[in-house]
Write a protein that binds this DNA or RNA. Structure first.
Lengths: 295, 295
DNA sequence: CATTGGCATACCGAAAACATATGGGTTGAC
DNA sequence: GTCAACCCATATGTTTTCGGTATGCCAATG
């Protein structure tokens, strides 16, 4: 059962004539006649009544015609759908994001994405520091909006922006009265640290920042997320040095202050599998750059 | 876009491996690999990710897979449907019938047909003496249940039964008191004749019957249908010689009596286009024979 | 470093399809 | 009634495509 035969069959059925159909198919009449007879042989029954004025579908032919044209349309549609997905006009894009960025980025990123790739279904998944690599590698997310960037040989990274470090403290803290906190004021105060491993730029950036100013802050706790850090800060366990965007998700009672003399920042990055050839990644990257730049 | 390629594609997608799929398709691995690449060339995008452990669908491939398997199923279903129609397991049968036979035959014929060919849609159309040939020739009915049979070179006829002629008269007629009416009693009485042409066996049968008994009945009226004949008989315009089955549709006030010494009858026939190759005709004929025989 | 497993490529023989030429049957015109 | 026109079917040669065998390439594995 060949699709070409079905195409020929439909053409002959519509033209009600082998000759006319052959003309429309840009081929000679005899081979078309042969193909029709082969199809009839395959089916095991005549599909046309041959008259002196052309061909006319039998009942069996009518039964076949309906499904044959549907099958043709489906095949064409399948090819078109595959092309559309390959070109990025349609498809699905799984976006992973770290929760620190959710409040600052998603409200502007999502409308931008919907405008850029209206035919694409989007779905979003929150990533944690410990799962984000795995989710990219097993392709359960296609792109990840990360802070800080992922370092992995299989994963490609594009920096789309950065956030300055700020000091998070309880509103009742004496430091909160200052417009900007001098680094020297941090000396000896307990620090709520994030669990990012030492080779990771975020943790090393905070560590380097302190080291550069010759500040020592004892680590009061190590927590999993920026939100936990803020909870402990609110509880008076210590201070935290966090990216500025964390302010947007901060609970009441926490205030952020810039660190005077500290221009250090942490990158916002888009990450994806190096071997992923989805054209949506480039579009996503453009959107992310556009949306993150003003921050 | 060839259906074979789609079949191969689906096989590879399901087996997630060219080698396994080739085995299942009873062919060698290299040509299958070539076909897949040709399909990818046709689509213009890779459909599989080639890993060291086999093949894995890309998004584009997934988009194609859904429609490709549907298209395959539709094509197979189309072929099957055509075969089913050709073999008479499914399809449509348009049955024409003349109204004289409706009361006597249809109530038993229709259930019999539905039992014999449950997958076939039936539709029924009443035929008149003047349209029945045309309806068969233009295929708007496939078979016709006729009385009398049709004579036409393109139309094939199978006799399935016969009905004796009876005399139809008003219940108040003096003849109605007889159990059977001797032919001699008809001499000179007015006859309500049907318009069947002279070469037609029905009319000629009545004419021959009268001629054989040397009876002359002046023609009071010529009417189109058996029912009209009975109306005129009821109105006292004359007598009618009608097939026995017409009794079932006779209005109150009409009685039928057998004609003594007259064994003449008129055929009940199934008629169809000689070139119609529908297998349903044979089944229909069997049903009609079975149902008409006891009459 | 060799071996294994899996896909891709090269080449050849076989099968299928297409084009040209032609036959046969029916319709319609003169 | 004959002839021309029309349309589908058949026959034959050429070209395209497909499938099989042999082999190469690459990565993972031990």
């Amino acid at each position: 059962m060949d699709l070409r035969r079905l195409r020929y069959f439909v053409a002959v059925a519509e033209a009600r004539s082998v000759g006319k159909a052959a003309e429309r198919l840009r081929m000679a009449q005899p081979p078309l006649s042969v193909q029709i007879r082969k199809l009839e042989g395959e089916i095991g029954a005549p599909l046309f009544r041959r008259g002196t004025r052309g061909m006319d579908l039998t009942e069996a032919g009518q039964a076949l015609l309906a499904r044959a044209s549907e099958a043709l349309a489906l095949a064409a549609d399948g090819a078109e759908a595959a092309r559309a997905v390959a070109s990025g006009r349609r498809g699905r894009l799984s976006v992973g994001y770290m929760f620190v960025l959710a409040n600052a980025v998603l409200p502007r990123l999502i409308p931008e994405l919907r405008r850029s790739i209206p035919g694409v279904d989007l779905d979003f998944a929150e990533l944690s520091a410990s799962t984000r690599e795995g989710r990219l590698l097993d392709r359960s997310v296609t792109v990840a909006l990360c802070m800080p960037a992922i370092h992995h040989p299989e994963i490609q990274v594009a920096r789309v922006g950065a956030q300055a470090f700020m000091l998070a403290m309880p509103i009742r803290s004496p430091l909160a009265r200052l417009g900007a906190v001098p680094m020297a004021k941090l000396q000896g105060r307990p620090l709520i640290a994030l669990p990012w491993p030492d080779h990771d730029p975020a943790s090393s950036a905070v560590a380097a920042l302190l080291r550069r100013h010759q500040i020592v802050m004892p680590i009061a706790s190590r927590v999993e997320t920026v939100h936990s850090a803020m909870s402990l800060v609110l509880a008076g366990e210590g201070l935290a040095i966090l990216p500025a965007c964390a302010q947007l998700g901060a609970p009441r009672g926490i205030v952020f202050r810039p660190l005077r003399d500290a221009t250090d920042s942490i990158d916002i990055a888009v990450c994806w599998r190096r071997d992923s050839q989805s054209p949506l990644i480039r579009t996503f990257l453009k959107c992310a750059e556009k949306v993150v730049a003003p921050l």
